[in-house]
């Protein structure tokens, strides 16, 4: 959690228009991912936002889940860039 911020719950998310839900999740995930990978934060967040909202909410509640998903996304991105 970012200090001073109320945790984003499933009901809070469900109350937001569908279009804004990904932005809301992104706003919460981005600083956490930036702390891990400052230069790749925007790209990694964008990649992760394409997965299901329930999984994204779980990542916000579980540092372990967030960390493993971020590292997997970084590995996929770096492998792709190495191929190119």
């Amino acid at each position: 959690h970012v200090r001073g911020q109320e945790p984003l719950t499933a009901s809070m998310l469900a109350a937001a228009p569908l279009k804004e839900q990904k932005q809301l999740l992104g706003e919460r995930l981005y600083p956490l991912i930036q702390a891990l990978h400052p230069t790749l934060a925007g790209k990694i967040t964008g990649m992760l936002l394409e997965i299901d909202n329930s999984e994204l909410l779980h990542m916000l509640e579980s540092p372990e889940s967030l960390h493993s998903k971020v590292e997997e996304a970084v590995a996929v991105l770096q492998a792709h860039q190495a191929k190119e």
Binding site: G26, E27, L29, T45, L49, K69
Partner: peptide, 23 residues
């Protein structure tokens, strides 16, 4: 985990935080 990795889209649009978001 393999399914998750396979689902990742490296061409996804980068996320841009909304710097004008209300507090």
């Amino acid at each position: 985990s393999k399914a998750f990795i396979a689902s990742l889209n490296v061409d996804a649009k980068p996320f841009v935080p909304n710097v004008h978001a209300a507090e």
